[in-house]
Structures are given as C-alpha cells and as structure tokens.
C-alpha cells in the first residue's frame, strides 16, 4: 500500500457522518460512530462540521510522545500502528495530535486511528462533497 495523504476541506463537510458509519462497520463489524477511526465534530450554533482524520505527520507527534512505544509509524505507508497491549492509556497522543485525529474509547479501552483501509479509504470514496479527499 502506498502512502495515502488525506486532506480535509472543513467548509464543505455536511455533517452526514457517512464516513464514521462505514468506518465502524468496515473495521469493527458493527455500526457505532464512537468506534470509527475518524470523527466529525460539530458546532451547533454555526451549523459547522469538521472531520478529524490522521494526516500521517512525519515525524508523528503521537509516536514521539508515546512513553511506552505502543505507537509505531509504518515507514512505507506512514500509517500509525497501535499495540493496544503496550498502551498505558496516558492519552498523551490524543492531547498532542494537532488534528484531534487519534481517539480513545473508554468503553473499549482502545485507541482508534485511521489505517487507510488497506489502500482504499472508504471515507474518501463516500465523501460526496470531498470534504475528505486524498492526494496521491
């Protein structure tokens, strides 16, 4: 899988959350927006939405700040691999991510971060306004 750079065009996000729906179904086998590997925040009063997804930063703030080595960046694809066993839930990565793209589930005690769907990101292919789009 090549490195897939994904960008976000916030003003065009409609808040449909199809990205979260398909992401959780594809990866977790259940529909649960909280278990998606990207997420959309919203501002009710201004009717604005903002997708948050891993940008494969190099160097990666999340990897650098991780005290246990639970996060490893793949040198080829740039994606962040998570060893849930090694994670001590300090959430430093969540705090450091400039894109708010890495999420922690209290319920599952698990980190969620985008893995680019083995080269065919579903969110990109289903974002009809291209609020999330890829640059190869």
């Amino acid at each position: 899988m090549p490195k897939i750079e994904i960008k976000v065009d916030t003003p065009t996000c409609t808040g449909c959350r199809i990205c979260e729906m398909v992401c959780s179904l594809y990866h977790e086998g259940v529909l649960n927006l909280e278990k998606a590997r990207l997420w959309v925040t919203d501002n009710y009063a201004e009717s604005l939405y903002e997708p948050h997804i891993c940008r494969l930063c190099e160097p990666s703030h999340c990897v650098e700040v991780c005290p246990t080595g639970a996060l490893i960046q793949d040198p080829e694809t740039g994606t962040i691999g998570v060893s849930q066993e090694q994670c001590n839930a300090c959430l430093a990565c969540v705090e450091m991510c400039p894109y708010q793209a890495i999420r922690w589930s209290d319920e599952l005690r698990k980190l969620f971060v985008c893995d680019r769907c083995q080269g065919q990101p579903l969110c990109v292919s289903l974002c009809t306004t291209e609020a999330i789009y890829s640059v190869r």
């Binding site: 398909v22 259940v30 649960n32």
Partner: peptide, 25 residues
C-alpha cells in the same frame, strides 16, 4: 447513544451502500 448496532452482513452492507450511493450521486 454509544451502543453497537449489529447488522446481518456488515461488509456486504458497506459494499452495497457504496455502490448505491455512487449510483445516486
């Protein structure tokens, strides 16, 4: 709500939904 909603065929559902959405759009 943060509960799981289970579906009968998750992968096939995603495929069908993708295909139909693209057709619609």
């Amino acid at each position: 709500g943060t509960k799981d909603v289970s579906v009968a065929y998750p992968k096939e559902l995603v495929e069908y939904f993708s295909e139909q959405t693209k057709r619609l759009m």
